[in-house]
Design a protein around this nucleic acid. Sequence first.
DNA 1: ATGCACCCTCTAGCAACTATAGGGTCAAGC
DNA 2: GCTTGACCCTATAGTTGCTAGAGGGTGCAT
Lengths: 135, 135
Amino acid sequence: MKIGELARATDTKVETIRYYEGAGLLAPPPRTGGNYRSYGTDELLRLSFIRRARDLGFSLDEVRELLALADDRDQPCGAVDAVASSHLATIERKIADLSQMRDELARVIGGCRLGKVGDCKIIQTLEPMRGASHN
Amino acid sequence: MKIGELARATDTKVETIRYYEGAGLLAPPPRTGGNYRSYGTDELLRLSFIRRARDLGFSLDEVRELLALADDRDQPCGAVDAVASSHLATIERKIADLSQMRDELARVIGGCRLGKVGDCKIIQTLEPMRGASHN
DNA sequence: ATGCACCCTCTAGCAACTATAGGGTCAAGC
DNA sequence: GCTTGACCCTATAGTTGCTAGAGGGTGCAT
């Protein structure tokens, strides 16, 4: 399997696969006579794993860790759970942060579409001194 | 006001202020005899504006746009509303994406803390072929 | 033999900073 | 008067996770 086929099979760009190789997530595969990378089913599975983990928002460092853990199938899986739980906590923090942003923005938007910038609630929110006092 | 004082007053790192200057968000201020940047109240207000906008998740490009709009106080503020609304939409998309990640992760976590990696639901989710079939 | 799709390496670019190296300035204390 | 320390300066490289480009080689069909 050439790199382009692997790319299509995993919905990954060719450059990204080469990047993962450089980043140590995929081992350098054997090469053909023409110096083309040649992949087998193992690499397809490994890359699918990586893509799924990335889709779930794991960082490349976390993916590396998960790959190492997944390779040692007799280990207790508390370590896997720890990586995933800490990632879940990160996601929940991000959601909370974004929700707060959303609420603040929503509170401010709408109601000045027809006014002038000088009276705009959005600008006043960003520029509280001028909006509130002398100007 | 020296750059360090401005940094403390706006809860910004000194390097970030210099970065904003290079990025065109803050004008190059006058210098003292010793070549130190010297800021006044205008820059304090402008940097506060930038920080607030950044806290609300606006990109530097969006901040640049908002600053330009805020400077022209007689313009209708539909343009400001457009920037903010489009940003709100982006935030809502991010929240939706993260919420989906959170749900998928939460579904998978817990229940294998005591098992082995070979039976781990998290790993199986990432590695569906092996988990489901022959191995 | 020539066109075309595909592959190769190496390097630079993106956002938005952060950190480091290698220096200069300024006020205080001895 | 000289050193110590906190602060400032520029310029450059690093961070994350790719993506895009230059400048070339390979392999197959026409």
